[in-house]
């Protein structure tokens, strides 16, 4: 089982995300060869107050609530990558996993009527296509450790900038 420290997921930087939804197109095109945001595994949300946007998708949780919630054992977590594996024959579209997920990452497919979720484009040698396509470089594949490192780097950048401004 891959340790939590090494588990990779897709993170969006809300300072960089402009809400263009290119990731949604990239996702539906990669998986279904069509353009349809409703079939995308990553979805963009914009706040009408601040006009800030962010893209959300599966965070490959430790002890994922979606897996625990499934009454038919249709969901399991990959030991290798932490992605959620869906047994299409077992899933009956009851939606308990959708209810259980705090990030809105589990979604009902409009045609198969079973759930689907980010698989990190596991069959693509160049990795997740949303990350590749994001015009603002707002999406990255990270581990929680890298996220913490980035946050620390940003914090000191801010600190030093403020410091420099005071010195001016």
């Amino acid at each position: 089982m891959v340790s939590l420290h090494n588990r990779k997921f897709i993170s969006a930087d809300s300072d960089k995300c402009v809400g263009c939804q290119v990731c949604e197109y990239a996702c539906s095109f990669t998986h279904d060869k069509v353009f349809n945001a409703v079939k995308s595994r990553i979805r963009v949300v914009r706040s009408n107050q601040s006009m800030k946007s962010i893209a959300l998708t599966c965070r490959k949780c430790q002890e994922p609530a979606c897996v625990a919630a499934c009454p038919r054992d249709a969901l399991s977590q990959s030991l290798e990558t932490g992605t959620i594996i869906i047994d299409q024959d077992q899933c009956n579209g009851c939606g308990w996993c959708i209810e259980a997920c705090n990030y809105g990452a589990m979604m009902m497919h409009p045609e198969s009527k079973t759930v689907y979720v980010c698989d990190l484009c596991q069959y693509r040698p160049d990795g997740p296509q949303c990350v590749k396509w994001c015009p603002e470089e707002a999406l990255t594949v990270v581990t929680s450790d890298v996220l913490a490192q980035k946050a620390r780097l940003n914090a000191i950048k801010k600190l030093f900038q403020e410091h420099e401004e005071l010195e001016k």
């Binding site: 402009v18 809400g19 263009c20 601040s50 006009m51 800030k52 015009p135």
Partner: peptide
């Protein structure tokens, strides 16, 4: 200007809020 946001599908985002 607090945000520059994009329309759907756009890769040059220009909307200055």
């Amino acid at each position: 200007v607090t945000r520059i946001i994009a329309c759907n599908s756009c890769a040059m985002r220009c909307e200055h809020e």
